[in-house]
């Protein structure tokens, strides 16, 4: 079975002053899979994710998307290329409505003169798209699409952020600690959302410290240690304590790491 990875990184290096956050890190994401990225604090996993989502520019190394090298100078560039990120802080504007938030930075304008001359937003179209997307992901407990995001619960806000990524992500969706701030019930909702997104055929990069969640949904687990990829394991062949042992250095990784 020869599969081509949709997104790869080779030899990424990122230094902050004298600290090397990424030390020739590699990364591979295959189509349609959920790849979990785990690692201790300071292992450099968030620097790697930021490099992929365009939030930082690596000093060295190469990122390729569908075989073509890419250089993301800002999150906008990554988004234009089809990589959507759900940030840990969600990146929502609390006072704006759900629809306004989902379309922030890529608003739909009214057709004709109203749109081109008066730059008028097409609220109805944006609200319809937003509602469709939310109901597709089973999030229609929200009564009013025009309500401000700050009036929603934590789980609902997470849902809006995931829906935004799923609505616009055409190639890759990255989720940074999506369940960290949530209760048991909301976490369950979000895990189902993640599997929903996968069913749509989008590959997902999931960064999490929550081992049960990682082992439940991930197809492969990328273990990051000391600024580089230590090993990629199959969650069916290893236990959670193995994974923790690899990532903390308590145990040496299995020798020739499985290629894919």
């Amino acid at each position: 079975m020869v599969r081509e990875p949709i997104l790869t990184c080779r030899g990424l290096v990122k230094r902050y002053g004298r600290v090397t956050a990424l030390d020739h890190a590699d990364f591979d994401l295959y189509p349609g899979e959920i790849l979990a990225v785990i690692g201790d604090n300071g292992a450099g996993k968030s620097s790697m994710i930021k490099a992929i989502s365009g939030a930082i520019l690596p000093d060295e190394g190469e990122i390729t998307l569908e075989g073509k090298p890419v250089h993301f100078s800002s999150p906008m560039r990554a988004r234009e290329a089809g990589i959507e990120t759900v940030y840990q802080n969600l990146a929502l504007s609390p006072a704006l409505s759900i629809a306004d938030n989902m379309f922030l930075g890529r608003e739909i304008r009214k057709p004709g003169v109203l749109g081109s001359w008066f730059r008028m937003l097409d609220r109805r179209a944006m609200e319809k798209h937003a509602r469709d997307k939310l109901s597709e992901l089973g999030l229609m407990t929200i009564q009013n699409i025009g309500q401000a995001v700050e009036t929603l619960s934590g789980g609902q806000r997470q849902g809006v952020a995931v829906a935004r990524a799923a609505a616009f992500g055409s190639k890759v969706v990255i989720m940074d600690e999506p369940t960290a701030a949530l209760g048991v019930k909301e976490s369950r909702r979000v895990l189902e959302l993640i599997l929903d997104v996968k069913r749509r055929g989008l590959p997902i990069v999931l960064i999490s410290h929550n081992m049960p969640h990682v082992f439940e949904v991930a197809d492969r687990i990328h273990i990051h240690r000391l600024g580089r990829r230590l090993v990629v394991i199959d969650p069916k062949e290893y236990t959670m304590s193995d994974a923790v042992a690899f990532m903390t250095g308590a145990k040496a990784p299995p020798e020739p790491a499985l290629a894919a």
């Binding site: 906008m76 990120t85 990146a91 938030n101 922030l104």
Partner: peptide
């Protein structure tokens, strides 16, 4: 409005 609300979130949101 978004910039005044939360500039970091606005930047990340595009």
């Amino acid at each position: 409005y978004a910039v005044g609300d939360d500039p970091d979130a606005a930047e990340l949101a595009g």
